[in-house]
């Protein structure tokens, strides 16, 4: 069973690659992509650690609620492990 995750609802300043519209939203890991250098350090010219990167799939219903065009359409995004936590809910 695919792992359910939640994007941390954080709002730091500065350069990050976790889109605002996904923060606090839950999805399932579509695939693991391996380790990549952390852009939050690279962006400032710093030596960067590697972080695991995942493709996470969200339903449009999860992202937009009743305003979704079609609730079962999906949105996939790449998110670094440090932006993800265990989901609070379980898949139906």
């Amino acid at each position: 069973m695919a792992e359910r995750v939640r994007v941390k609802a954080l709002t730091p300043p500065g350069h990050v690659r976790a889109p605002w519209y996904l923060r606090g939203r839950e999805g399932v890991v579509e695939r693991s992509l391996g380790n990549f250098h952390n852009p939050e350090q690279l962006a400032y010219g710093l030596p960067a650690e590697t972080k695991p990167l995942y493709r996470v799939r969200f339903t449009m219903a999860e992202l937009w609620g009743p305003a979704a065009e079609n609730p079962t359409d999906t949105l996939d995004a790449e998110l670094y492990g440090h932006w993800l936590e265990k989901a609070r809910t379980h898949a139906a």
């Binding site: 500065g14 350069h15 852009p39 690279l42 962006a43 400032y44 010219g45």
Partner: peptide, 12 residues
């Protein structure tokens, strides 16, 4: 010399 992340940070 710098990364695409540095480019994006400056643009932002």
């Amino acid at each position: 010399l710098f990364t695409v992340d540095g480019l994006r940070r400056a643009l932002e």
